[in-house]
């Protein structure tokens, strides 16, 4: 048989496969009729075997068949597809489980945050020359001027609230993303961002404490801050997870370790976005609301309890099954 005959005999098969692929490209797999759906597997296998035959005997058709098979392969073989059910499953089960599995990374990130907050407070307290590192001079002056006028800072005009809320949300999401992806710099970028935020928090807390306004300060920070710090800790931990792949890949090559860990880290980031959105809404509307500091702290307590419950639910999940497979967004 020559390739002319080969083409003549099998052309119909290839054309049919090609038509089906065109339809998939235009309307997705759901646009196929029942017969098409049933025939696509056999057609693909037949064409693939033609490719093998052509590679040996008819090199002039092999290129065409290769393109056809490659194109079909990238449409027909898939390991997972997007579904809302998977997303729901991820947020209710998979994510808490992930947090549980990688808890030491989050504890490490939290430790960095706390330590740098203490450091920031100390720098400020002893009036070290390095205090400017923790808190830029302009902010310090602005805060002090507010004290002089008897104000405690955050009094957002009603009309400004939505703007603040969304600006803060966007800012926090970006900071968290950076925290995460900069883990690839052997973790230095992640730690830098964590330390900077910790220093700022510590220094501010110390200034307010020095002025005898601790209650006001924490009532301004904690209602949204609990969730915000929670999310930043999660992303920081995820950044450290990525860093661990680069620093200590273990039995894998660095690239392979990075691939494995980055996927988990990204899932953690996706999980923390809604937390940041909620925190942003609270920061825009509840934090500046005209209610007593005590009430705000109680509210903060509620958010802390909710976050804790969410994380604790991961414990039961972990017992149930394989920790590697956190569900939907699984690979």
């Amino acid at each position: 048989m020559n390739s002319q005959k080969f083409i003549e005999i099998n052309r119909e098969t290839w054309d049919r496969l090609q038509n089906i692929l065109d339809r998939i490209e235009r309307r997705g797999v759901s646009g196929l009729s029942r017969e098409e759906l049933e025939s696509v597997g056999p057609l693909f296998r037949r064409t693939a075997s033609h490719l093998a035959q052509a590679q040996g005997n008819f090199p002039d058709v092999a290129d065409y068949l290769n393109r056809l098979v490659a194109r079909a392969h990238s449409h027909l073989y898939r390991t997972e597809s997007f579904s809302w059910r998977n997303i729901f499953y991820f947020y209710t089960r998979g994510f808490p489980k992930l947090v549980r599995v990688y808890r030491y990374y989050f504890l490490a990130a939290a430790a960095v945050l706390v330590a740098s907050a203490v450091w920031g407070a100390a720098l400020n307290h002893y009036g070290s020359g390095l205090a400017g590192l923790a808190l830029p001079e302009e902010i310090r002056e602005a805060v002090n001027q507010n004290f002089a006028r008897g104000e405690t800072g955050v009094k957002i005009d009603n009309s400004l609230k939505p703007l603040f809320s969304s600006a803060i949300m966007v800012n926090n999401i970006m900071v968290s993303f950076y925290c995460l992806v900069l883990g690839i710099t052997w973790g230095t970028g992640t730690v830098f961002i964590l330390v900077r935020n910790g220093l700022l928090l510590g220094a501010l807390a110390e200034i307010f404490a020095g002025a005898g306004l601790s209650l006001e300060f924490w009532s301004l920070i904690l209602p949204h801050g609990i969730l915000e710090l929670f999310a930043v800790t999660l992303c920081g931990g995820a950044g450290l997870l990525i860093a661990s792949a680069v620093v200590r890949p273990g039995e894998y090559t660095r690239m392979d370790a990075l691939r494995l860990k980055a996927r988990e880290a990204m899932k953690i980031a996706m999980g923390s976005i809604p937390i940041l959105v909620i925190a942003g809404i609270i920061e825009g509307f509840i934090t500046p609301a005209g209610i007593s500091p005590g009430a705000k702290l109680i509210f903060a307590g509620f958010t802390a309890a909710a976050a804790a419950l969410y994380v604790m639910s991961g414990r039961q999940e972990e017992k149930k099954g394989d920790s590697r497979n956190a569900g939907p967004v699984s690979v």
Partner: peptide
């Protein structure tokens, strides 16, 4: 591996645009 991209791959490759 030659298969269609998965949703998680898409997420990862696009978030890594930052890097």
């Amino acid at each position: 591996t030659g298969e269609a991209v998965t949703f998680s791959s898409i997420l990862v490759r696009n978030l890594m645009r930052i890097v």
